[in-house]
């Protein structure tokens, strides 16, 4: 299966989940309730009740988004440079992103079930997974870009090939 086909499958899965959400009857206060006295401010209310009709759908939605994003990033490496090591690296980084998403969502579900959460580094644990985990899970891809730049993103041979192409085009222009 080519990367573009995999990306397309992920998109169709995301679309299917989205359609399911759109046709589900939203519970009252699904997007928060206006504060009684403070203008412009919303409260979240009962978080568990807000998910009553769609259940764990948001969890699966984000699995599709992470899968799509990773496939797209894989497509960013020129086809002839895609080797086994690259696939292992992308799969590992994707696994980290999925693990973080699982920790975030399961932590949030625990909070919805018990109403309790620990506060670490100034914020609730699931919120820390969001701040640092979600950002960090793709910062790893950024780091990979820097570290593997000359191997996958701009090898010296490609740079030389591009310089040759520019020179060729300039020579053609000169002839005309």
């Amino acid at each position: 299966m080519k990367a573009i086909h995999l990306a397309f499958v992920f998109l169709l899965a995301i679309a299917g989940i989205t359609v399911f959400v759109l046709i589900s009857e939203p519970p009252t206060g699904a997007t928060g309730v206006a504060h009684d006295t403070i203008a412009g401010m919303k409260l979240g209310g009962d978080g568990a009740a807000r998910l009553a009709t769609i259940g764990r759908t948001p969890f699966y939605f984000q699995l599709g988004v992470i899968g799509f994003a990773a496939t797209l990033l894989y497509m960013g490496v020129a086809e002839r440079r895609r080797d086994g090591a690259l696939r292992v690296a992308i799969l590992t980084m994707t696994a980290v992103a999925l693990f973080i998403w699982y920790m975030l969502y399961s932590g949030y579900e625990d909070y919805l079930a018990t109403g309790e959460t620990d506060v670490v580094f100034g914020f609730p644990v699931p919120t820390n997974w969001m701040f640092w985990g979600i950002w960090g899970s793709f910062a790893i891809f950024d780091l990979f870009y820097v570290v593997a730049f000359r191997r996958y993103f701009l090898p010296k041979e490609d740079e030389a090939e591009f310089a040759a192409l520019v020179a060729e085009l300039k020579a053609d222009e000169g002839q005309h």
């Binding site: 997007t31 209310g45 978080g47 998910l51 975030l104």
Partner: peptide, 10 residues
């Protein structure tokens, strides 16, 4: 809900 990861909008 506001200080949890998905805020008040869900």
């Amino acid at each position: 809900e506001d200080i949890m990861p998905f805020g008040t909008l869900g």
